[in-house]
Amino acid sequence: MRPRKPPADAAVVMADVGVTLGTARRPVPVLNGVDLVLPRGEVLALLGPNGAGKTTTIRVLTTQLRHQRGQVTVAGVDPLRHPARVRRHIGVAGQQVSLDKRQTGLENLVMLGRLSGLGRRAAHDRAHGLLDEFDLGVASERLVETYSGGMGRRLDLAAALIGRPQVLFLDEPTTGLDPRSRTSLWEVIRRIVAEGSSVFLTTQYLEEADQLASRVALVDGGRVVAEGTPVDLKRRVGQARLEFTLATGPDAVRAAEALDVVPAAELGTEIDREGAGLTVTLPTDGSVSHVRWVLERLEHSGVAPVSWAMPEPTLDDVFLSLTGHLARPLDAVDASAEPEEMAS
């Protein structure tokens, strides 16, 4: 796909970027012509499964890895030619928390503040400000090794912000966090965006991209396979569905017949009459009025569902509909589902 001509002041531009890793004898092509634009002040989410090339993309943009093909600019600067200048404009929070466990939160931040050019006083003020802002004020004098997973991620994010970067890079900022920590981290990221930073983040969660990003790029096998606003992508996926479970087969048939007339056809999916036998699935825009209408129709036809659900489209749905294959091999789906997701 060819992106539009990027705006001259874009935070990130990647054009036909190729990276091959591995050894000379066994080269591994990891990025195969990535085209991406992050306009200034926006949030771009790189959405893709494990091994898609998300971290590699971040490493290229943050001067940790040299690409062999294509053009890159970050904050208007070419990282191959001027890595030191790029480093003055970026903040990075990697996939793992990379702070000293045997320093306190405050010590870590002051150190990084000094290294990004702040004076002693300024570094302290900035560190305290960020610790308070990220709800770490009370823990500021504790060693990082005593922090919970969510606290560690928040501190890592604060560390990335210490030099007031123009462009912020976040590699899977919430992977491995429980739902509550994830939500609170999203809150923090939204605040950062509201202050005008450009944010380039990667994620494996469609919901996260939806929550945070103004643009989503779907990556698979080192390529961008789809790009657009979250609404765009979701529309192409077929949006959310309503799922009803009925007690008996005949009930299911009656429910399906009753719902057949519900005007949801323009949303895409067909009603699944056989499918799982006792479930009836239909598309919805998720609005209260549509759900109420559906429930009323069911009641009218005298069918009482045993239960109902409205599963959000998953990364797998997106992949299936946009690439024709699943994000992960089928048998790996269950194994890689995180416990917190099953609980919610």
């Binding site: 940790q64 003055r88 702070l99 290294l115």
Partner: peptide
């Protein structure tokens, strides 16, 4: 291996 060197390499250090 702990990521500190990696972090420093993305900073003007």
């Amino acid at each position: 291996s702990g990521g500190m060197v990696e972090r420093l390499r993305t900073m003007p250090v």
